[in-house]
Amino acid sequence: MIRTKKLDEKKLNFWESIYIVEIVKGLVVTMRHFFINLFFPSRIITVSYPEENLPLIGNAKLKSLHRIKLRKDGSPKCVACMMCATICPSKCIYIEADETENYVEKYPKVFNIDMSKCVMCGLCVEACPEDAISMDTGEIVGGSYDRFRNYKNGGLFLTKNELFRHLPHETISKSGAANRLANKYLEDKND
């Protein structure tokens, strides 16, 4: 059986059926937009990403670009325990650990994040036992053609230089599992 559907097409009146009036009406709308935007370009709401960014709303800034928090003396809180690299579903974190002379014993010699692989899931932040890695910078990763170029030069490859930093006006916390060792290290440093 052939199923048919009757369309209720609107019956056009004379002025509509000769099109011209309606075309002019349509042109008036588009022309209005055109001339307003031509003479007042600031009314265009496009954001030229990645040069311009809208401020992030609410908790969205907790899923932004990664950083590694630093201790008071500027050494990284990270102890290269590999928890983030282990849990990372896209395997974008690469860490090489090494031994230090101070109490904490272990530190990351190399810490790279390949943002072209990162899916911004935030599992690394939750896995971190030292509260070292966090995604609270409020910066958004810019689009780029070059994933292997350094982040600061417009690429997507984050190394120690870009990751290890304080945020402006940040109060430096002391919490973390290797706290005793880290605190001992900091106390020694102050004395």
């Binding site: 937009h33 370009p41 265009i44 496009t46």
Partner: peptide
């Protein structure tokens, strides 16, 4: 460019 201006784009 013109179509962009008509549609509030850049």
């Amino acid at each position: 460019k013109l179509s962009a201006l008509m549609q509030d784009r850049v």
